[in-house]
Write a protein that binds this DNA or RNA. Structure first.
Lengths: 335, 335
DNA sequence: TTGTAGGCGTTATCAG
DNA sequence: CTGATAACGCCTACAA
């Protein structure tokens, strides 16, 4: 006597689509998963029914059945350097294209507890794969300790050659540019000693100097910030170096400002090369000669490795991404 | 004859915990959800069983039942400005603390299709709430069109007063600093006209000038990049302005470099104030006077609004976050 | 090529 | 305060 058949407006599901299309739920499922064995005509009917009903798949249900969430977890550093930020966006883009979701957690890469907590968080989320920004030795340690059993790829680290920019080569490029300009006393404004990329760059500095038979060595450690570069200026000045290879662009900026404040001109008195090629570097004063890294490419590879897991790993072991020297005005010949 | 009773090692679930603790699955579920009506002693037994078995909750199953994913979607801009980057990390931190996950999607905020795709992506993910970076008028349009039915809060936008830094006030602060130093011809290096924050800052510029009875107006639009600031230098010079309020720190950097290249000194000839207070601004040459925004606070509020949904909204309507002027060396009195 | 039956791990509902 | 039972929406068998 009443139309109470429509008790409560449940969300539309495969069952509804199936009913409307006059097929079984299973067939709808097949269409959903692009299974080959579905008659084109049947598929069309199903598809039509789907968008007539405004059907949207329920991921929770799918995940429950397949035990796969199609989600990639990203453990990022809360330091928010330029490079990593780029990488995250690139990861998301690649992942989305591959039909994956991205769940992020930020941690202080130097703090083991913070890293542990973030990874546990991601793990609880049941991500299918993990991209870990492991710029810090400690981050890798935690990763090994935890042994998540989840496919993982480390980024911005020194361990995994296929997914990193060749830091040593980059550093050598920078030092070579300085040496080629005629400098013989080249200092290194390094990143924190326990950062893997800092270490790699430092060894590149050492290697290039050694290869050229240059005996002068002078290293001062900063913490990646412009402030630390600024504070390093005094030491650099006292060392008598005529050129500095800075571990990143921001420290180079601080260094240049610090030098200038004490009457030392760049590049007239001291030449400087940075690392990263942030968008701002071109507009520093003077425009900064630096080493560019292709973060986007890095991210693409990381996601491909995770998503492709098991297919076409046969492809040749990929070489590290090659860095490129960007020549601008912060390098000149010594007086 | 064989111990094949242990057929396949299925993941431990509530059922296993329940068995070990000698209770029903439902009771385990209650413990999991911190339901009040559980005898302390029973709870202890369950908890003990849980970590004896190394139990981990399955979110997919929970989501299937509750129809809530405990995930917050973040639609971010792929422009990767300093502020938004900070905000994302802060959002993640707040969300995690509240027991939520964060799923991100990046889009080109100026491109409606890109934004639409990103939002659809997040929506398919069935996020419980949405934080949208809507610095662009078009982003808001898409948002309104789509009408997702998901609780949403917009950030870095001009619409929603409670979740934004007061851009007009910030701009007035900047212009006032210049005017107080004695400048009467103050130009504005603005962001793109269709960016809401750019518009708000421009109107703050106008308002402060009007309030002081200053007649000079000169606005040139950039695109937030240092490059565009650099390119604007010629126009600024030609205008005869003795001071410039730049829409962000990066444009200020480019502007200063451009000015200097053509023999105009900052601040001796032209004073400059920026906006954002990026970490580098203090080490520009000269150190940049700028307006600081508290992005962390912004993010916290956004998450609180989403998570708190329905509880304690009674609290007084929160005021916009107040920006602060950071005084450094890029401002001087006109000759 | 398509349909049927059962289960994935948790929460909701209603009894006790 | 605790337990039984039935969803939740999809997928993996296997059968037709």
């Amino acid at each position: 006597m009443s139309e109470n058949a429509e008790a409560r407006p449940r969300a539309v599901g495969v069952r509804d689509v199936a009913a409307l299309a006059g097929v079984s739920r299973q067939t709808v499922s097949r269409v959903l998963n692009e299974h080959p064995d579905v008659a084109p005509e049947t598929r069309d009917r199903v598809v039509a029914a789907m968008d007539e009903l405004g059907y949207r798949m329920n991921n929770a249900a799918r995940a429950l059945g397949t035990r796969r969430t199609r989600t990639i977890g990203v453990l990022a550093s809360d330091a928010l350097q330029y490079g990593p930020s780029r990488s995250i966006a690139a990861i998301e883009a690649s992942a989305r294209e591959a039909g994956y979701w991205v769940s992020t957690a930020y941690a202080d890469s130097g703090d083991a507890d913070s890293v542990r907590a973030a990874i546990e968080h991601l793990r609880a989320q049941a991500v299918d794969g993990l991209v870990v920004f492991a710029p810090h030795a400690r981050t890798l340690d935690v990763l090994k300790d935890l042994d998540t059993g989840i496919p993982t790829v480390a980024l911005h680290t020194a361990d995994c050659s296929a997914h990193s920019v060749d830091q040593v080569a980059g550093a050598r490029l920078a030092v070579a540019a300085l040496a080629d300009a005629g400098h013989r006393r080249i200092a290194h404004l390094a990143g924190p000693a326990d950062w893997l990329e800092a270490e790699a760059r430092a060894s590149g500095y050492e290697a290039e100097l050694a290869a050229r038979g240059l005996g002068f060595r002078m290293t001062v450690c900063g913490d990646w910030t412009a402030r630390s570069g600024y504070e390093a200026a005094a030491e650099v000045r006292a060392s008598g170096a005529t050129a500095v290879f800075a571990g990143n662009d921001q420290m180079a900026l601080g260094l240049i400002t610090g030098l200038r404040e004490s009457g030392v001109d760049v590049p007239a008195d001291v030449s400087v090369v940075g690392f990263d090629d942030t968008p701002d570097a071109e507009y520093f004063w003077p425009p900064l000669t630096t080493v560019r890294q292709d973060f986007d490419e890095l991210a693409r590879r990381a996601v491909a490795a995770l998503v492709g897991e098991g297919e076409a790993i046969a492809s040749a072991p990929v070489a590290p991404v090659a860095p490129v020297l960007i020549t601008r005005a912060s390098v000149a010949s010594p007086r």
